[in-house]
Amino acid sequence: MKKVEMNPYMLIKGRISEILNLTPDVKLFKVRIDGIKDYLPGQFFMVSLWGAGEVPISVTSLPSDVLEFCIKKVGRVTGEIHNLEVGQYIYIRGPYGNGFPTDIANKRGILMIAGGIGISPLRPLIEWLIKYPKGRQIIFFYGSKTPKEILFLDDIERWRRNGIGVHLTVDMADKKWNGPVGLVTELLKSVNLNFEDAISYICGPPVMIKATVKELLSFSMPEERIVTTLEAHMKCGIGKCGHCYEGSKYICIDGPIFTYKEIVDYALSL
């Protein structure tokens, strides 16, 4: 019989070892899986349930036997994933995409700016930077709609203890909240940093990314050191289905991480 070659669309089965309910519509799935060991912060996987379909989801853990996916219930597939329980199976393929560039971060001040579930791809990058500190100044800005929707609060406290400057803000405060209220871009103004020599990693909803980039440019941060993620509809993850191309770039294989300079040069839309 003819040998059937590897099929890149074929899924690998993983067992859900733990589910954390982070907010009413965001869950963290820990998936025990064999055979996927190497991936980078910023890369994504196609996560799938048979009968529902596939969705691209950023990995939110550093490489280990357990992959972590932070999934917000926004549609049909993510809705069905949310119905899964510990011990059940989930199917994935990947990793895909380019991941965050870390070589340009050497010895520079680092700004991490997240909005909402945009913290998810930044989380492994922060963990990576803590693991390999190299004496960098790291500041983390995080905007959420409400205090209840702040994800990974335990991790954030640990990051704070590890010397990361943490600045949280919310759109709408509750009784217990005594931190700032407003957009994450407002927080940037208060920080004491040489923006011209720093690097920034941004992830969040498009409107937040746009506002943040504008702010950073006004502080003279060079375009090639503003790094962000782009979001797109995807069906394949490997540059074939055609849904995510912008110009001659495919978000799935050339991205999803781009510097602002690349976004301008390739005429990508933020």
Partner: peptide
Amino acid sequence: TCFTVTDRVFGDIIER
């Protein structure tokens, strides 16, 4: 060449 992918359920069998 653009395509979409969908799952179709036929009783006990799911076809992607």
